[in-house]
Design a protein around this nucleic acid. Structure first.
Lengths: 196, 196
DNA sequence: CTTTTTCCCTAACGTTTGTTAGTGTATTTT
DNA sequence: AAAATACACTAACAAACGTTAGGGAAAAAG
């Protein structure tokens, strides 16, 4: 067929991972086959194994790249000196932006992580749990400082994160509103629902 | 192995469909095999085919049973003479209740519908689209009557429906709050976010 | 230019998949 | 009690799966 074309300074492996994210998003991890991926990449299935160790490696490459980005952002945010409600809003905007502009990876990380193999699976679950706890702690703090109405913090985090994953439907829909408009609407409803 | 045990007046097919919902929820439709299902049911894989036509039939049985329930509820609601905000709240409570008490089916219908085969796939997508439009119409109506703040109705529906699907995380979590409490918290945030 | 490394190919492997065919035994109906 | 139906079994199928082996050509390094 010919070799894999790389643009910029991306490795051939990067190209494969990126195409895999698109394919996994469309078909689901289990339903997507290495032969399909190979076709998208423009190569025979066996050739993929010159660049990756296994199908599962592709998945954990995707999942942890996303997880790392969010963890980094949260860490950075925790040290900032702004109100809790502002922290929540910043984080929400970061999530929305991620869902709009890095859709495939984020979607796959969100929906297909259960197919990770050990020890990545446990690792990922721990990170996820910890992330939500730290997010909830920010909400708790806001409640204590009376910036946020008195609700169960865990539930509110759950609502916010899943509401954002609903941007999937926005991507799918025919007559979309603009990305920026979407963001403002989501912030209005979600932050509006928290405010005292 | 022995025959399939039915309780009440459920058919053997009903038993299979119900066990399939649990399995599909845990593993995902594609990853769940008929041999695994057979083991859960307590029978050999081939024996399942005395009751069902195919693996796909199981999926569309699940998806349309859920879809029908929601459509019926919406239809019933549309004729009632209550405020738009009350309609939204009623529908939300119905969704939350469904997610709490018919978890497996609802989850599968939500996440695995893309594996439906034609013509069921198109049919399901149409129903889904139509449901959301009618839900959004209620929100629009509430905005016009100044019960609901001025936001994009489509986005708000998207947020609400996906926020509810986040109850999945609640099921998974170790220290859960009660189902009723969860419902009140979700209503507080979501309806609170809409109110003018 | 020569050597080494990179990378894609074809062919094939061992599994697992959904599903069908055919047979025998319980259960239900007559 | 006899006949018919329902239902579970074993065995097997063709297709699709992830992955490995081995060889040859192109690209990079010397």
């Amino acid at each position: 067929m010919g070799r894999i074309k790389t643009s910029d300074n991306a490795s051939r492996k990067d190209v494969i991972v990126q195409k895999a994210a698109i394919l996994f998003k469309e078909k689901g991890f289990k339903a997507a086959s290495m032969r399909e991926l190979a076709e998208v990449v423009g190569v025979e299935a066996a050739s993929l194994y010159n660049h990756i160790k296994s199908k599962n490696e592709l998945l954990h490459e995707i999942c942890f790249s996303v997880a790392n980005r969010y963890n980094k952002k949260l860490e950075e945010l925790e040290t900032q000196e702004i109100s809790s409600l502002e922290k929540v809003e910043t984080l929400l905007r970061f999530h929305i932006e991620g869902m709009v502009h890095h859709f495939e990876e984020v979607f796959v990380s969100d929906r297909e992580w259960k197919y990770l193999s050990e020890p990545y699976l446990s690792n990922f679950q721990n990170q996820r749990r910890s992330y939500r706890k730290r997010f909830a702690a920010i909400v708790e703090d806001g409640i204590k400082k009376k910036e946020i109405k008195k609700i169960d913090a865990t539930t509110s985090v759950l609502i916010m994160l899943h509401a954002i994953s609903g941007i999937e439907s926005w991507h799918r829909s025919k007559q979309k509103i603009g990305g920026a408009e979407l963001e403002e609407n989501m912030i209005a409803i979600l932050v509006g629902g928290l405010k005292k």
